[in-house]
Design a protein around this nucleic acid. Sequence first.
DNA 1: GCCAACGTTGGC
DNA 2: GCCAACGTTGGC
Length: 141
Amino acid sequence: MAYWLFKSEPDVFGFDDLIAKGDKGEEWDGVRNYQARNNMRAMQVGDQGFFYHSNIGKEVVGIAEVIALAHPDSTADDPKWECVDIRAVSRVVRPVTLDEAKAEPRLKDMVLVNNSRLSVQPVSEAEWKAILDMAGGTKAL
DNA sequence: GCCAACGTTGGC
DNA sequence: GCCAACGTTGGC
């Protein structure tokens, strides 16, 4: 099981929008960056990822799960762009902000802290646990 | 709204 | 294949 982080602007598509999609989830489409795409290609069904709100909030607000392997992005002209499907799993008890992540020694190597522009990021198991710890765990949707 | 950082593009 | 120019992203 691997861990990831999905970044989105909440005024375009926020965690609540993903929750509204229910168990069927949603294509994580629109990614036009090779690193982000390659991360999605590496995902397995059942992998989990943090859902991070950029610009507004700048915080980890919930957890999503990969429910379909990478497939061609239906919104792309070029089949080289692929995306996975994800669904919302749970909220964090307390959102963890970017400022808090930057101030946390355990997260000093986290991609979010060092390269916040990458929209789909890998998260190590230690980072995953640290964020969950800071968030006070998760709660049902 | 500004600007720094980053990725991509295209001329050479 | 290098690198300058450009566009986009996202924190501030």
